[in-house]
Amino acid sequence: MQKTSSPEELARVAKQIRRHIVEMTGAAKSGHPGGSLSAVEIVTVLYWDVMNHDPAKPKKADRDRFILSKGHAAPVLYAAMAEAGYTPVETLKTLRRLGSIYQGHPDIRYIPSLEASTGSLGQGLSLALGMGAAARLNGETWRTYVMLGDGEIQEGQIWEAAMFGSYHKIDNVVAIVDYNKLQLDGFVKDIMELEPLTGKWRAFGWHVIELDGHDIPAVQAAFAEAAATKGKPTVLIAHTVKGKGVSFMENNPKFHGVPPTADEVELALKELA
């Protein structure tokens, strides 16, 4: 992979990742395309620009870690890891099939270069803080990034972890809330409203950055601000669009857990040409 800070280059990678997401979930006939598409720019900026990592040495000790706590968005992670060179691109379409390394939710037994097996919501922030605490204890400078779903943070464990992170000043951890406003059963505001969300995180002692999660320079700037923030962990409240990049999937609750049909895949790929 070629690391880059160029927003244009990053946008090109992001588009390629979107194409994989559509194709994989279409081929699998199941999966979660909407919440994968909303996270594309953030994941792309992390892997291609921000994180210290090397697909040739996936376990190098000083690597930055990324945990996809919203494990159902596995397609965005698989597409990014494959494009980066961790795993094969050509088998992405085996997503969710028996024996595939591309399991329904990220599974470290099948892809050892993953940082965590996820899929049960609410757990990734605790894992990230544990990793951050270990790094600090060792005097090491690597950082841990964890992406949370907006629906996911309805889990009580997130707020247990949020208290822990600020109390223990784990400032080498960055959480990102992929705030696409939709969850499985519908709009977040109709299931369990999260607002005022920035106020909640501030009250829990976190440094909060609110941004457009599809604006690549804004995402880059937010991660830089997080790195410069000492004494408290940072959370990015990333406003995103579920299904982003495919007109008929955008903001459509149906595409939380329903894949595009063959015709829809074709249409989507045209839009992502």
């Binding site: 544990g130 990793m131 060792n138 009580g156």
Partner: peptide, 22 residues
Amino acid sequence: FSCGIAEANMVALGAGLAMAGK
């Protein structure tokens, strides 16, 4: 690591620490 009265976070935090070699 004092976790407060929050066992769910405590267990997963332990997992994170272990994944980083502790």
